[in-house]
Design a protein around this nucleic acid. Structure first.
Lengths: 110, 110
DNA sequence: TGCTTCACCTAGATAATCTAGGCAAACCCA
DNA sequence: TGGGTTTGCCTAGATTATCTAGGTGAAGCA
């Protein structure tokens, strides 16, 4: 049985980029942010998050820097780059297009 | 580079089930139907469609029967079962929940 | 001292979809 | 009659994203 918290594939990068628009955050905070703003409907697993952050840093969409968290623990802060901001635009548009297309099919008159 | 026609993973079964609500159809027709009703935004590949149809028949969501197409060619007609109709409800609800959740994150105030 | 929470990391499994082929019959046209 | 195009079905293997299930270490608290 699938978990209801499974993400739609292809949306994780977009969600992370979107979370970072408000400013640099560390991985753990990104996780909680997505969980909270989605009203607990979305739960990103750590095993998905960290590889994604790596991928995205390699792509140049985000930039990492070690720092200290609010709780005085070492944490890696990720910040959106210019390329990341552009990528967010692309993915966001793509998402809207897909959403619309699927809803066209779903709402097609019987 | 990803094709813009790539489907969001997890939505294919739902789209097929939805297409069949209007009545039994063969695979080829399901493909065109989805393409048309989505205004060409969605393009299901045959290599995705047929395995999906098999999966879904094994699950008991659809029932297949050989027949003749409008063009007088042999074609396998798929019909929605009762279980398939229920499944469509489940997946449709799930899709709406996910959509809403993602949009909550995307539209979160800065 | 020991438990819990925060925070990061990774290997391997899982599963959905796509790529890229192939087959056969019907129709059309020369 | 023969060849090309369209219709329609099928499959093996690659790709890729995400999850599962483990792990580490340091901070804070009792």
């Amino acid at each position: 049985m699938k978990q209801k918290t499974d993400l739609l594939q292809g949306t994780l990068d977009m969600l992370i980029l979107r979370a970072l628009v408000t400013g640099p955050m560390h991985g753990f905070a990104i996780m909680s942010r997505i969980h909270q703003t989605s009203e607990s409907a979305l739960q990103v697993e750590q095993g998905s998050l960290y590889p994604a952050l790596y991928r995205m840093e390699a792509q140049g969409w985000i930039h990492a820097e070690w720092g200290l968290s609010e709780n005085n623990r070492r944490a890696k802060y990720y910040a959106l780059t210019e390329a990341g901001r552009r990528q967010l635009g692309v993915e966001s548009e793509n998402w809207n297009r897909m959403c619309r297309a699927i809803n066209l099919v779903m709402d097609f008159p019987l």
